[in-house]
Design a protein around this nucleic acid. Sequence first.
DNA 1: AGCACTCACTGAACCGGTAAAGTCGCAATT
DNA 2: AATTGCGACTTTACCGGTTCAGTGAGTGCT
Lengths: 352, 352
Amino acid sequence: MTATPLPRVTIKDVAARAGVSKGAVSLAFNHKPGLSEATRDRIFQAARELGWAPNLTARTLAGSRVDVVGLAICRPARLLGLEPFYMEFVSGVESVLTERSCSLLLRLVRSAQEEAVVLESWWRGRQIGGAILVDFRDDDPRAAAVRRLGIPAVAVGHPSLTGGLASVWTDDATAVTEAVRYLAALGHRRIARVGGAAALGHTSIRTAAFDEAAASLKLAGAWQVATDFSGDAGARATRSLLTAAPPDRPTAIVYDNDIMAVAGLSVAAEMGLRVPADVSLLAWDDSQLCRLTRPTLSAMSHDVHGFGAEVARTLFGVIAGEGDGSHPVATPVLTPRGSTAPPGPRVSPAGV
Amino acid sequence: MTATPLPRVTIKDVAARAGVSKGAVSLAFNHKPGLSEATRDRIFQAARELGWAPNLTARTLAGSRVDVVGLAICRPARLLGLEPFYMEFVSGVESVLTERSCSLLLRLVRSAQEEAVVLESWWRGRQIGGAILVDFRDDDPRAAAVRRLGIPAVAVGHPSLTGGLASVWTDDATAVTEAVRYLAALGHRRIARVGGAAALGHTSIRTAAFDEAAASLKLAGAWQVATDFSGDAGARATRSLLTAAPPDRPTAIVYDNDIMAVAGLSVAAEMGLRVPADVSLLAWDDSQLCRLTRPTLSAMSHDVHGFGAEVARTLFGVIAGEGDGSHPVATPVLTPRGSTAPPGPRVSPAGV
DNA sequence: AGCACTCACTGAACCGGTAAAGTCGCAATT
DNA sequence: AATTGCGACTTTACCGGTTCAGTGAGTGCT
């Protein structure tokens, strides 16, 4: 990219116009002591007249802060578009960044390795002052890379996954347990879970919690399927779960996101099963979508926007050297809607 | 943000290790002539050994390119999360940026004014080498601001809206016409359109096209409602359209995005109307969502990812000084699915 | 041999700021 | 009167690259 010929006004011009040195202008614009009110005013006046704002690039180079936070997301693009989670998360992050006039550098990558490379080059190139890491998986190379380079970072995920980085997380284990307990309390004894990508750390946590809850409640049947979070995968998983004959068929299904739950709803309809009479469905990551279906989808909801904001705040803490730590945020809570109910009297699909 | 103490390796270290001057290293890394193969190799070797990569900040300051593209999006956060469009668009943009090792600077803003301010400060601060502008509205201040500052930019939207900036656009007028013609061909004579935000330029274009198509086809009834693109608004609009008694009720509804169409589907169900027997629904911005509902949603689909990619390519063209211009991309095409059919024999809602 | 010319590379200026050390006038202290 | 201290600036040295005007060795030509 070549620069465009624009008569750029620099600190020197402002200094000249205000009749002071560059240093004085710098002091004024960084609100540092050592200038009289009068001079300060003259400087701001001059800057305003010239329409000058400090060049962030130069400022960064000169050694102080970097007003940019990096976020690399590693998921197939097509999926990202669909999952309301990320945009909402980003918007939460933004809301805090904006307060501090920081910006977000975004990159979609294809693997955790690639992400580590991107982060490193951003850091080396002094492009970012900190980073946000999401979607931790088993054997994740990122924590080590970030540590080695000394990049201030905050990880989204349970501390057990994030290799000692500052972490912000929701208590998914408890939430899964709550979801299962709720369905059991409604009378369901055969419950399935359509989970996300198996390699993802939080999927493992949810899977383990589901097993444990199923065991402790002595459910008659418990199934788990791993998917890639896509609607198609959710549909496939649902179809395979529901094709079993009634005694071996789950009467309730928990999904790891809302897209898959929507897909599940369709599959049930297509198979002639009524929701919630024949099968109850429970979504995760409650978004507007859950209220737009018929029946509406019960969901484990949490405040994704607020979550993003908390992540950003934590990052600023880390950058300020306030140390790493674990920051749990509110556990997703159950929002019952129309897709969950006690299991109905057995009705054959054809009988609808 | 304070810098972390990291023994940063700079061009000087590389130069020393390779036994050359800083200038030579610079030449090598920019693939400029004036170095022997042997020296070049030694330099790269030294850089590899030290794990050095040029500091982009310094590089930018030194005057050449800026490897970052700015994108400020102005829509309510909650909505953004829901609309698959943006993430997919962004991913398309990214795919091209990545090829050129560029990054995307993202910011969510609340108004076009604020966006203009953000763009200006990015530009002044030398943070971006170009910008992408979306969602043009009537009386948009951004084109003027961008022109005044000389920011290389590409606008997403019909040339009539984008104030002379290079623009990339889909022919929405034709697409709307096609949608209406298709419904009319199925036998619909009373067609409604649930549009997006009235202030948005492309909404006006679609509105005008719809009117024109309705007139030229001599439809018996044509309605248009403006919304804010949210599912709730789509539901409200649909409800109000469908509460009319059959002769005054549309038999087909076109939506400006897919979320509203999904909402419309629910409302129809809730009112006891069958889709498509009693009312046909047609979505826009076809995403995976349209295939997850029951019935599946017919939609005007276009390749949003490819659209984003084209926008990025165009921006690089503008930056390279290849001049502004209008870049139409493929018109959305109709993808018929299960939600559209000839209007059925009149059935009273209660009769379902 | 002498001259012009290219090639490979160096050195220094510069980009636009920041930060630490230095200068200077003036009031308070001794 | 000399010393100290301090507030208000200025000077200067970077930050880590790019760029461009040299420089000196080597080659080709006459």
